[in-house]
């Protein structure tokens, strides 16, 4: 059960979809829709003021090339759960930016359920935040330090790219280090790799 009211921001060009989504969300006592942006202009200026806990965004608002990196765009603008809104087919790589995807054909309870799952499951991750890296994260970190790309890491560990990205996010969150070279130093200082492996 959640005992908090989450502030939801919707970024979506269509008023009809926005009104519908707002109607659905506000059936649940846990969500209040605080605002609505029809475009992504001035996001860095507008977002911090809105203090949203959850942002539902239509990835189509982003140019084709930027779509792959939506989570990076939002990352620096605050901490919130990012949820994608999909009209129809959208590709895996774009979807991996989001904690979850809701489709416009989903019914009300399903939408509420999807979002509730995100805020409750990621709560657990927050609890771990202070702790050291998990064993799995250490393995991923070693691969990162060796200069492997997300796709290679996914193949090597038999996980999806989505999972790799979410591991990377958690590693950076815990260590405070974003760059590959910085993470390599972390791995060296913690004896996860030795100097000879590092070219």
């Amino acid at each position: 059960m959640i005992n908090k009211k989450y502030r939801v921001l919707i970024i979506e060009p269509s008023t009809i979809i926005y009104q519908g989504l707002k109607y659905v969300l506000e059936k649940s006592p846990n969500f209040s829709v605080i605002g609505y942006l029809r475009d992504i202009q001035f996001l860095p200026q507008r977002l911090p003021q809105l203090k949203a806990d959850i942002i539902i965004v239509n990835p189509n608002l982003f140019g084709f090339h930027k779509r792959q990196n939506i989570s990076n765009i939002f990352q620096d603008l605050g901490s919130f759960y990012l949820i994608g809104l999909s009209y129809a087919y959208s590709n895996e790589e774009v979807n991996s930016n989001f904690s979850a995807i809701i489709g416009i054909l989903d019914d009300g309870p399903k939408i509420i359920n999807t979002i509730t799952n995100v805020v409750t499951s990621e709560k657990n991750i927050e609890k771990q935040e202070q702790s050291d890296l998990s064993d799995r994260e250490k393995e991923i970190l070693i691969s990162i330090a060796k200069g492997m790309q997300n796709k290679e890491i996914a193949d090597q560990h038999n996980i999806s790219i989505h999972t790799v990205i979410s591991h990377r996010k958690n590693i950076s969150k815990k260590t405070g280090i974003k760059s590959v070279s910085g993470l390599t130093i972390y791995a060296l200082l913690n004896n996860l790799i030795n100097k000879d492996e590092f070219v």
């Binding site: 405070g176 280090i177 974003k178 760059s179 070279s181 910085g182």
Partner: peptide, 9 residues
């Protein structure tokens, strides 16, 4: 960003 990395290390 890289300065933050250095600070954290």
């Amino acid at each position: 960003d890289k300065l933050s990395d250095l600070k954290n290390i």
